[in-house]
């Protein structure tokens, strides 16, 4: 089982050494990658994704459990270490959901694929709007439905110990639920985000500037408190969104949680608890 990932700093865009020369991420930790667009967030994820050994533009080196990854053979062994979900990803093949998932399950030698496939579909439908079925063709999926399926697939079929998430706030899915699903026990999760709620859900955040790692902030007690306020506000906004989407008119007492929703939330949390 993977224990930690270490990133040894390289150079920023103007060729100076990065301020942060060593960044460690322990198993079970969530790391947010923050910074303005063009500051090198996606590049950092890419460096980790390919287990860089000073060969990328940044010259960073990545260590898995303190070991060096030298040969191509080493990299082959690490091929299923990481799974990635990003806003730019799409399904391009012309196949039904069940055909495709079955293929992926075979590649990953998943035992009892029928059961797992049912769960993948359930999670997909929990994350996005209009439900999809096993017979739905991948090319018919909306952007949000596609990303929902990707999240469910990464969580249950790829099931990698390291998950890289790139700006899923723009993916048209319930991103807090998505993060819940992707952060299993003992997983290392890296979240590239511009979204304060997602940033604060992480244990720490690395701040990118000019292509380099410029600082590390640890989420404070105060920030956790702000996070819980943010989450509450978001739930309220979500409820409004759902009601408007369903064609309902808003009542003046919209901020009251109705009992049905509360029940649903509890079931969801129980489900998450058991599925990890």
């Amino acid at each position: 089982m993977l224990k930690k990932i270490t990133i040894l700093g390289g150079l920023n865009k103007i060729g100076l050494p990065e301020k942060i020369q060593k960044l460690e991420i322990q198993a079970g930790e969530i790391l947010a990658v923050v910074g303005p667009t063009g500051s090198g967030k996606t590049q950092l994820i890419a460096d980790i994704g390919q287990v860089a050994e000073a060969e990328t533009l940044t010259g960073r080196r990545v260590r898995i459990d303190d070991g060096e990854v030298n040969s191509n053979e080493d990299k082959q062994k690490l091929r299923y270490l990481m799974a990635q979900v990003s806003q730019n990803m799409n399904f391009v093949i012309d196949m039904t959901i069940s055909e495709f998932l079955m293929m992926h399950a075979q590649v990953r030698a998943v035992p009892n694929p029928e059961m797992v496939l049912k769960e993948v579909l359930a999670i997909t439908n929990h994350l996005s709007g209009e439900p999809v079925t096993f017979e739905t063709n991948l090319t018919q999926l909306s952007g949000g439905q596609s990303r929902a399926l990707m999240v469910a697939d990464v969580a249950l079929l790829s099931n990698a110990p390291v998950v890289l998430i790139d700006e899923i706030e723009n993916a048209g899915i319930d991103r807090l639920k998505a993060l819940d699903i992707l952060t299993g026990q003992g997983k290392i999760v890296l979240v590239v985000s511009h979204d304060p709620t997602l940033m604060l859900m992480a244990d720490k955040r690395v701040v990118m500037k000019n292509g380099g790692m410029d600082g590390i902030c640890y989420t404070t007690e105060k920030e956790r408190h702000i996070l819980s306020e943010l989450v509450k506000t978001e739930k309220r906004v979500n409820r409004l969104r759902e009601q408007l989407r369903k064609g309902k008119s808003l009542r003046s007492d919209y901020h009251e949680i109705d009992h049905h929703e509360e029940e649903e939330l509890k079931l969801w949390q129980e489900y998450l608890y058991t599925c990890h």
Binding site: Q50, N72, F91, V92, M103, V154
Partner: peptide
């Protein structure tokens, strides 16, 4: 590989490997 899903990348690579198991595969 940056524009398709993780799942598709894995399945595609598997197909390539089954056609040419000796090759060094690089993304």
């Amino acid at each position: 590989g940056d524009i398709v899903s993780q799942a598709e990348r894995e399945v595609f690579r598997y197909q390539v490997e089954s056609v040419n198991p000796q090759a060094r595969i690089m993304e």
